[in-house]
Computed example of a mutant assay.
Amino acid sequence: MNEQTDKYLDQLAKKVMKDAPLETPSFDFTNTVMSQVSGLSHNKVIAYKPLISKTGWIFILVGFLILVFFVLFGNQTSSSGWLNTIDFSMFSNNGIAQALSNFKIPSFTISKTLTYAIVLFGVMVCIQISFLKHHFNQRFEN
């Protein structure tokens, strides 16, 4: 019974295809489709922009070179500068330093270089957070 249904459907399909006229698109079909395609809104593509521009890298490089030349050729005498007015004794007079002194480490002190590095690291982290926040706010607004 299934074969008879298949034969009937096959004959019906052949008859419909034989009687159906051949459809052709209009003369300006391509132009009509292309005008509709060009009328569609284009998706906005986010172009790559580096976080630090070339001029920013130049300023960073110049600042680094100035710092290197100052360290190498600058005045090596220790004078009372603006950083000497800050009391850093809390770094050396804390519980960790006292606990380490109980373990027979009498000369545990934090050097000026390490103190400067810690302060500079904190400042740089704060600056970087503000730049990244501004960058991502601009990125999500577009």
Rank of each mutant, 00 (worst) to 15 (best):
T5C: 01
T5E: 15
D6C: 03
D6K: 02
D6N: 09
K7Q: 00
K7E: 09
K7V: 09
Y8D: 08
Y8Q: 05
L9K: 05
D10M: 14
L12M: 09
K14H: 06
V16H: 03
K18H: 10
A20P: 04
A20I: 07
L22K: 13
E23A: 14
E23I: 12
T24P: 02
T24R: 04
P25F: 15
D28H: 13
F29K: 08
M34G: 02
S35A: 15
V37F: 15
S38D: 10
S38H: 00
S38F: 02
G39C: 09
L40G: 07
L40I: 04
S41G: 06
H42N: 15
N43G: 15
V45G: 01
V45Q: 02
V45R: 10
I46R: 07
Y48L: 09
P50Q: 12
I52D: 04
I52H: 03
K54N: 12
K54A: 11
T55S: 05
T55R: 04
G56D: 05
W57N: 05
I58S: 10
I58C: 08
F59S: 14
I60M: 01
I60H: 01
F64Y: 11
L65Q: 03
V68T: 09
L72V: 06
F73H: 05
F73C: 13
F73I: 03
F73T: 07
G74M: 00
S78G: 15
S78T: 08
S79H: 08
S79Y: 05
S79N: 10
S80D: 08
G81F: 01
G81K: 00
L83M: 13
T85Q: 13
I86F: 14
I86N: 01
F88H: 00
S89K: 13
S92D: 14
S92Y: 09
N94R: 01
A97K: 12
A99K: 03
A99P: 01
L100H: 04
L100Y: 13
S101G: 03
N102P: 06
N102C: 01
N102G: 15
F103C: 11
F103P: 02
I105M: 12
P106L: 03
P106M: 08
T109N: 12
T109S: 11
T113L: 02
L114G: 06
T115V: 11
T115M: 11
A117S: 13
L120G: 10
L120Y: 01
V123T: 10
M124P: 00
V125P: 02
C126Q: 15
S130I: 01
F131Y: 10
K133G: 09
H134P: 01
H135P: 00
Q138V: 02
Q138H: 14
R139A: 13
R139K: 07
R139E: 08
F140I: 07
E141Y: 14
